[in-house]
């Protein structure tokens, strides 16, 4: 009988703890499949963040490190510098990467650190219960912006990919989404490309993945995907933001 679907070996058997309808599971699978297809399981070191993906070290079936909040790019830097032949990636959410870890991500990017960053942007702090994130949209209601994000009071959301694309260090920066099958396939391609470039020693690569949080957005999974498409994509346009010319 032909096998039409198989669990990738880069994921463990541990059941995911994510909420129903959360897209972290899809993104985990895309990362795992890309690494599997590139045949680098035995070389890969993942760095998990603080946030919803804090237990990623239980799910990715490779050597893992758990970093302090926001510090994953620094941890990945130390790790990669010791063993440059390892494939090192961080998996970070928006609070982790764009708020408390803004310095670490910026400097890893500008150094052209040869790591891959999977940046999951769902415009909210999930793990702590739905507080305002640096990527929360103007007017978006969260538990710490109960009247909607007031940009006069607390500023605007950060477009991390565009910001980092201004730097000379990064080799590849792209923003993708996982709100439908077509976009999931594109996301997979971007993630695989980022890892491929790292393996080739091209330098810093990052894929920002727009993701949904039905629980904290207060929506059904379907509504959340629709909301992502209609509200997040206009704020965070998809596409390749930076690609170093082939040398």
């Amino acid at each position: 009988m032909a096998v039409v679907y198989e669990k990738t070996k880069l994921l463990t058997d541990k059941p995911l703890h994510y909420c129903p309808g959360c897209t972290h599971g899809i993104i985990h699978r895309l990362v795992a499949e890309a690494l599997d297809e590139l045949g680098v399981q035995d070389k890969t070191i993942g760095v998990a963040p603080v946030g919803c993906a804090v237990f990623a070290y239980d799910y990715f079936n490779c050597d893992m490190m758990e970093a302090a909040h926001g510090r994953a790019p620094a941890v990945a830097t130390g790790c990669k510098r010791v063993n440059p032949n390892n494939v090192v990636f961080t998996y970070q959410g928006d609070g982790d990467l764009a708020s408390i870890g803004a310095a670490e991500i910026t400097h890893a990017a500008t150094r052209g650190e040869n790591i891959t960053v999977i940046f999951v942007n769902n415009a909210i702090y999930g793990m702590t219960g739905g507080q305002m994130a640096p990527t929360t949209l103007p007017g978006q209601v969260t538990t710490t912006s109960p009247y909607g994000r007031d940009t006069n009071h607390c500023g605007y959301p950060i477009r991390v990919s565009e910001m980092l694309a201004t730097l000379d260090g990064p080799a590849y920066i792209a923003r993708v989404s996982v709100h439908d099958v077509k976009h999931i396939m594109e996301a997979k391609k971007a993630i695989k490309k980022a890892f491929q470039l790292q393996i080739e020693g091209k330098g810093f690569t990052m894929v920002e993945v727009l993701s949904s949080c039905p629980t904290n957005w207060g929506m059904t999974p379907q509504e959340a995907l629709k909301w992502l498409q209609e509200n997040m994509i206009p704020q965070y346009p998809l596409g390749v933001k930076k690609e170093k010319e082939a040398e």
């Binding site: 302090a68 620094a74 941890v75 830097t77 130390g78 790790c79 010791v82 670490e104």
Partner: peptide
């Protein structure tokens, strides 16, 4: 902060 976390990564890599 970054320096000590780089230490964490390097020490973790042995």
């Amino acid at each position: 902060v970054a320096a000590i976390n780089m230490v964490y990564g390097a020490a973790g890599a042995g």
